[in-house]
């Protein structure tokens, strides 16, 4: 009765897109801000050291929490939109 296949496919590709965005930010704050780009951020001072140190010891953990709640929130909306919720 409904085009269930196309809807499931649309739901899955929307999920993949969301996961991709979440993981880009995940990698940017930890591997990027905390390690690889730290020399580039050395000019930005935070409490006696630089932004990279803050990302490595504090910032990335805070961003991880925000990311998970953002993902859960957006997925709930996707579940409803595509009739995949419980």
């Amino acid at each position: 009765m409904r085009q269930e296949n196309t809807d499931a496919a649309a739901y899955w590709s929307a999920n993949l897109k969301l996961i991709r965005n979440v993981l880009i930010v995940w990698a940017l704050v930890s591997f990027g801000g905390g390690i690889l780009f730290r020399p580039l951020l050395s000019g930005i001072e935070v409490g006696g050291t630089d932004l990279g140190f803050w990302f490595a010891q504090q910032g990335s953990i805070i961003v991880f929490i925000i990311l998970i709640f953002y993902y859960a929130f957006r997925m709930n909306a996707l579940d409803r939109k595509h009739g995949a919720d419980e």
């Binding site: 969301l18 996961i19 979440v22 993981l23 995940w26 930890s30 905390g34 140190f53 490595a56 010891q57 990335s60 953990i61 991880f64 990311l67 998970i68 993902y71 859960a72």
Partner: peptide, 18 residues
């Protein structure tokens, strides 16, 4: 050793979406 802080928390992002 910040690896421990980022590594042992960043895994939860993977758990939540993968």
């Amino acid at each position: 050793n910040s690896s421990f802080l980022m590594g042992w928390t960043g895994g939860y992002v993977l758990l939540a979406c993968l």
